[in-house]
Every structure is written in structure tokens, then in C-alpha cells.
Amino acid sequence: MNLWKEFTKGLIAENPIFRLALSLCPALAVTSNVYNALGMGLTVMFVITCNNISVSTFRNVIHPKVRVPVYIISIATIVTVAMLVLEAFLPVLFKELGIYLSLVVVFAIILARAEVFAAKNKVIPAMVDGLGMGAGFTLGMVTIGGIREIIGNGSFFGYQLLGSWYHPPLIVILAPGGFIVIGFIIGAMNLSEKRKKEKMEKTAAAGGNI
């Protein structure tokens, strides 16, 4: 299915954090534990999907010269609505995410999807793309958050995994740890890609294709 492809591409092949290297700020700032990472991931998933739908719906009436301001207005509206709703019904999560919630407006990945995909596609594919990208973003956030929480705190989702024998290096849940973890993940992904390519080339050469 084509739609299924639109959805899955955001998970690994075009993962917003690790492949497109967009929205690294929240990936650094709110991934010190899995709970916050997941909360932020789901919020972004909601915003990106709604925005893709709205941009795709109005794509034919938006003047190309002012499309970016209009997209930003759309994103800002959705984020504000999300904030108001969270504040009213989930005040604790609202407090946890703090300032990063309002920063969702300027997350590059949301504007990028609006510009690259939603503005050129019909509503349903745009929605699926938003869901996929949001899921990929959430996956990335949870991966980083999980690694950082396990190494830096010895726990996962608040559940203590490693006993008192383990002395967590605090730096991993501080900002530098975010940089280091993201760097290592991207490095590992590139390395595995390179190895795969080399292997393919080798088998191709062995097959006598060159």
C-alpha cells in the first residue's frame, strides 16, 4: 500500500531526528527521561498531523508568496490550542513540558513537512505523512530518552532497572549527554548503512557485474 509507505518512511528511512536532523533542540532538551520524551513526542505528533491536514486542505487557496507566514499562523494556532487544552485538563504534564511546549511552534520538522509534503499532496496522504513523521519523531525521542535514562539514571520510565551497584554518570542526563548520545546514534546509523553498502558492492563484484 502506498499510504503505508508514507507512514513508515518517517520511522527509520526519513526519521526526523536521526536522518533529517531536524528539531534537534527538543531532542536534546526534553529527553532526559522517557516520560517527558514521550509526552513531547505525542504533542508534536498531534501538531504535525493537524497542521498537515490544515495546510493540505487550504493548499489551493494559499498564495505562494505568503505560504510560510500562513503555515506559521496555522502551526501557532494548533500549538496554542494544544497548550490551552493541556493546561485545562492535564496541568501536571503542562508544567513538566514547560517552555518547550510553546517552542513547538518553531520546530523545524513541522514547517518542513508542511512545505515539503502537505502543500503538494491531498489531505489523506498528508495526514498519514504527519502521523508517520510524528511517530518517527516520537520513536527518536523515546530512543534517546530511554538510553539517557538508563545510562544516566539506571531507570526506565521511572522504574529502577539497575541496582545500587550501578553508579550512573550524571552527565548523560545533562545537556552534553544529549549531544553525545544523539551523535553516537547518528554515527551508528551511518556506519551500519556504510557497511550494508560495502557488502552489497562486494556481492555485486563477486557476481561479476563489474
Binding site: S32, L170, I173
Partner: peptide, 8 residues
């Protein structure tokens, strides 16, 4: 309210 590092 605060903005201190979560978990630290």
C-alpha cells in the same frame, strides 16, 4: 513552578 533540569 521551575525550569530546573528534570531528573536532576
Amino acid at each position: 513552578s521551575h525550569k530546573e533540569t528534570p531528573g536532576l
